[in-house]
């Protein structure tokens, strides 16, 4: 009886001490918890769970794994800038080449997605230089092409299209897409980038001309007409001996339209340049994606 009693009490003691769910800090279970939260779409809590593993784990390898998974959770939340800074801390501890490649690739991708194209480009170059064998890693070839488009490196892109095509099975489709891409990249097909200063200058001497030069003919005509009309009102008032009103109303409106038009011409030139470039880049991106999706050798 005495032994049974002792046994029961030991059981109570052990149960009370070890059945406390908060005590579980085994990093594996935390990783699994993070995975399960990630699978449920709860990326915020998953990122915290992975960071906890990073904080608690004594194993550098496990910390890298947790950090990479956290990066995936952050990407799902659209926090691309944080992905870059978070992964940076794991780079010196990445033991093998494949992990290093994965980290740099994820950093480059996130830098690209956050709009830091020069950082993404330098990371991709680092991959090319340090790990030439990583050329076909995940979507790295696509990322390279997209970066060339965003950074407007047209000559490089035309050469790269050939490289991409060589990695794909020969097909008429492939040749058509490559030819289309190269044709678009010809200098005469590239979007015209007009000079805002010229736009401003044209409108200074010829009302509405700067807007027409920038590509907004309608706005140019409207501005020119407004200036003529206000000048007409001023002259008509002067003829009718309404001198003060002519100066104040007619010339007042004219100077507003005139100076406004000069400023608008410069702004419109910048705006239209950007619009044309975005449209052109979108066209290139679509073709690049078509080539990229063709079956590989």
């Amino acid at each position: 009886m005495k032994w049974i009693n002792a046994f029961c009490l030991i059981c109570i003691f052990l149960c009370a001490t070890f059945f406390n769910k908060e005590k579980v800090f085994a990093q594996d279970s935390e990783l699994q918890q993070g995975d399960s939260l990630f699978a449920q779409g709860n990326f915020f809590e998953a990122a915290i769970a992975y960071e906890r593993v990073y904080f608690l784990s004594p194993s550098a390898e496990e910390r890298v794994v947790a950090n990479l998974r956290k990066a995936a959770a952050l990407k799902q939340q659209g926090e691309f800038v944080r992905v870059v800074s978070d992964l940076q801390r794991s780079l010196p501890h990445a033991g093998n080449e494949s992990t290093q490649i994965e980290i740099i690739y994820e950093m480059a991708l996130s830098a690209f997605l956050s709009g830091s194209y020069s950082l993404a480009h330098s990371l991709v170059s680092q991959l090319d230089y340090q790990f030439p064998q990583a050329g076909l890693y995940k979507d790295l070839p696509l990322l390279k092409g997209m970066l060339m488009i965003k950074m407007q490196r047209w000559t490089e892109l035309a050469l790269y299209a050939d490289e991409l095509a060589l990695q794909r099975q020969p097909s008429p489709e492939r040749d058509i897409f490559v030819a289309k891409l190269k044709e678009l990249l010809l200098e005469e097909n590239q979007p015209v980038q007009r000079d805002p200063e010229k736009g401003r200058l044209y409108s200074t001497f010829m009302p509405g001309a700067g807007q027409i030069y920038s590509g907004s003919t309608g706005q140019g005509l409207l501005n020119g007409f407004s200036q003529l009309a206000s000048l007409g009102v001023a002259v008509a008032m002067g003829i009718n001996q309404l001198y003060f009103s002519g100066v104040i109303i007619g010339l007042g409106a004219f100077q507003s339209f005139y100076f406004g038009g000069v400023k608008q011409a410069s702004n419109l030139t910048v705006e239209n340049n950007l619009k044309r470039m975005i449209r052109f880049q979108q066209e290139l991106e679509t073709i690049l994606l078509e080539i990229y999706q063709l079956p590989l050798f």
Partner: peptide, 15 residues
């Protein structure tokens, strides 16, 4: 039982 409860609480607070 007291010891068990004490350890339970200590463990929770430790976490």
């Amino acid at each position: 039982v007291c010891c068990a409860l004490f350890f339970l609480n200590t463990s929770a607070q430790e976490s």
